[in-house]
C-alpha cells in the first residue's frame, strides 16, 4: 500500500507550477501511472499536486490555422473517440484506442500518457538501477525480452507510449508551463534519450508541466495509421508498434514518416527509411526494402533479437496496408 504523501489541489496552472516547484512534488492527473509508481516505490514524493480541477486543461479545441489543441487532461478515451481526431489524425485515434484497458483509457490523460515512467521491470521493480540513480542497468545482462533494440545507451528501456509515435508523425508540439512561463517543444524533441541524460525521460525541468499538445493541420492527402503488436490483446504495452504517415503524388511517395514504439528508450523515428521511401512507388517491394532498412542499425540484447524480424514484418505489412488503404 502506498506510503503517505501530502496533497494539494491546484486551482490554476500557476498554482500547479508553484505546487510542484516545492520539494519533490508530483503532478496527479489521471493517476494511473503515478499511483502505481508510488505503490511500487519507484520514486517517493512528499507532495502530490492534483491538476484535475483545472478545467482549461480538459479542452480539445481547433486552432485558428486548422490544427488542433488537445488539453493535457483530455482522456485517452476522449482522444480515441473524438470525431475530429478520427477523421484528421487517424493514427492518433488508433493509438489511443490501443492504450491499456477501457477503464484506464477513461481515466488516463494524454499528458500522463506522454509523461509516464518507463515500464522496464527492473526500473519498476525492487532494483536500484541506473535510471533510479543506481550504478547499473539490470537489463543489460538480465531478462531483456521487452527491452530496446535501438538507442540503448547505458539504459535499455523502451518508451511505453502509444500516442507519442502517432503524435510525432503529425509533427505535434507540447505546450509547457513552468516557473519561467510558457514554452513549446516539438514532441520529437520532447523525449530524452539515455545517451543524453539517463535519469530523465522528458525535457521537462523542475516545476514544469505539459498543458497541451498542439497538432498542426494535417497535410492534404496524408494517409496515416498506427499498429501495435503485443503479447496480450488488451492491457499490454507494445512489443512493437509503428506509426506511419505517407503522402503520394502520381503514385510516388512524397512525404513519409515512420515512428516506432516498443523499439527504443524514446519514440524512434526512422529518417533513413523515410527517405528511402520518398520517390518510390509504395508497393510490396519498396515496403520490403524499407522494412529491411528500418532494422539495419538494430542492436539486440540477449533475449530480444526477435524484435528485428518482428519490426521488419510489421513495417513491411503496414507500408503495404497503408498504400492500399
Amino acid at each position: 500500500m502506498t506510503p503517505g504523501f501530502s496533497y494539494r489541489r491546484a486551482a490554476s496552472i500557476k498554482d500547479a507550477v508553484t505546487g510542484i516547484s516545492e520539494g519533490n512534488g508530483r503532478i496527479l492527473a489521471g493517476g494511473t501511472d503515478l499511483l502505481g509508481c508510488l505503490r511500487d516505490s519507484v520514486f517517493t514524493t512528499n507532495m502530490v499536486v492534483s491538476i484535475t480541477g483545472i478545467k482549461e486543461l480538459k479542452r480539445i479545441d481547433e486552432t485558428p490555422g486548422g490544427g488542433l489543441s488537445i488539453g493535457a487532461l483530455a482522456t485517452i478515451t476522449e482522444i480515441s473517440e473524438s470525431p475530429v481526431i478520427r477523421e484528421r489524425y487517424p493514427a492518433l485515434a488508433q493509438a489511443a484506442a490501443e492504450v491499456a484497458s477501457p477503464q484506464l483509457r477513461n481515466q488516463g490523460t494524454i499528458g500522463g500518457n506522454l509523461c509516464q515512467k518507463p515500464r522496464c521491470w527492473y526500473y519498476r521493480g525492487e532494483f536500484h538501477c541506473l535510471r533510479k540513480g543506481g550504478d547499473r542497468c539490470y537489463a543489460v545482462a538480465g531478462e531483456n525480452h521487452y527491452h530496446c533494440i535501438f538507442g540503448g545507451n547505458g539504459c535499455y528501456i523502451v518508451h511505453p507510449s502509444d500516442t507519442a509515435p502517432a503524435l510525432i508523425v503529425y509533427g505535434a508540439e507540447a505546450t509547457i508551463a513552468g516557473p519561467a512561463g510558457m514554452r513549446k517543444v516539438s514532441l520529437e524533441n520532447f523525449f530524452v534519450p539515455p545517451a543524453k541524460e539517463v535519469t530523465k525521460e522528458t525535457v521537462l525541468e523542475a516545476g514544469e508541466i505539459v498543458t497541451a499538445i498542439v497538432l498542426p493541420p494535417p497535410l492534404a492527402g496524408l494517409k496515416s495509421s498506427y499498429r501495435k503488436i503485443r503479447s496480450r490483446q488488451s492491457w499490454d504495452f507494445a512489443l512493437a508498434g509503428v506509426a506511419l504517415a505517407l503522402r503520394t503524388s502520381n503514385g510516388r511517395v512524397t512525404d513519409a514518416r515512420i515512428v516506432l514504439s516498443g523499439a527504443a528508450p524514446v519514440p524512434w523515428r526512422l529518417v533513413d527509411a523515410e527517405n528511402a521511401l520518398i520517390g518510390k512507388v509504395p508497393d510490396p517491394d519498396s515496403a520490403k526494402y524499407t522494412a529491411a532498412l528500418s532494422v539495419k542499425d538494430a542492436q539486440p540484447l540477449k533475449h530480444n533479437a526477435y524484435k528485428i524480424p518482428l519490426f521488419k514484418g510489421l513495417i513491411e505489412e503496414e507500408v503495404v496496408n497503408i498504400s492500399q488503404a
Binding site: 484497458s101 521493480g125 532494483f127 539490470y138 545482462a141 538480465g142 490483446q233 488488451s234 492491457w235 499490454d236
Partner: peptide
C-alpha cells in the same frame, strides 16, 4: 501468455510479479 520470469543471471528475483507483466488472458485473448 503466461510465464514466470526470474532474473536468472543476476539476482534470482521474479521480475514480472504483477498482472501487467504476468499476463492472464483477457476477453480479447
Amino acid at each position: 501468455t503466461e510465464a514466470r520470469i526470474l532474473d536468472r543471471d543476476q539476482t534470482g528475483k521474479m521480475v514480472n510479479r504483477n498482472l501487467h507483466d504476468y499476463k492472464l488472458p483477457t476477453s480479447l485473448d
